[in-house]
Amino acid sequence: MKYFAGIDIGSTSIKIVITDEAEKIIAHSVNATGANFHKNSMAAFNSLLDKENIKRDDIVYIASTGYGRKLLKEADETISEITANAVGARKTVTGGKVKTVINIGGQDLKGISLDEDGNCGNFVMNDKCAAGTGRFLEMVARTLETEVGNLSNLHFSLKGVPAVINSTCTVFAESEIISLLANGHSHEGIVVGVHYSIAKRIARLIKRIGVEDIIFFDGGPAMNKGLVEAVENELMRELFIPEIPQITTAYGAALIAKEAYEEEAVHA
């Protein structure tokens, strides 16, 4: 049996997807990146193989992607997370063509528009700061003494008016949230305010490449249903959320691995 692996080493977590020759996902995992990119990636990879009883030799091609892609010497190919994300999204949606991909990662926001052939046509990315990214949501949860996973619950239990968050800078927003707390605003109101401030930032960013249906929304924060609602309202469009939003890019990398393997086989 031949298998292909896509390893997406992000700033927050390492995502691994293993596919078979029919391009079906047969195993996947999500682990914390930590401070040692290479060691943790290989540990995650090996434990996934162990858990799923896959022999290392059956993995015939590995493509790495994400922030730490170049550190993984074991990879046969490296590919940028923008291309991998586009490829993964295109394959995940079966009932129509994806035209726009929105991705929120640990430290960046991306918008990708796909051309007629489903290739990455144009893309935008935030530059220097982590505003509105996964890190930003982590900071909010920490300031409100809760878990990131609980933000969605807080969002939907708001009774009353949401707070308005003006800062998108992670550092300034933190002090803004603290002063909102000091003024007696509810946690729920602050969370809704935060979600809308991120949604507005996303809308501004991706309007630069044009927004077209089907819009695919992925990355860890896409698991937060409150944030999804805010983004849908800001864009006034429905979003397609994949079953496991974190692994689309790793899946794309695995698909690229398969393609590269087959191409090499032709030339060999």
Binding site: I79, S80, E81, I82, T83, C120, F123
Partner: peptide
């Protein structure tokens, strides 16, 4: 990342 994605496309 942006430059590599551009080159790949």
């Amino acid at each position: 990342t942006r430059i590599e994605a551009f080159i790949e496309s």
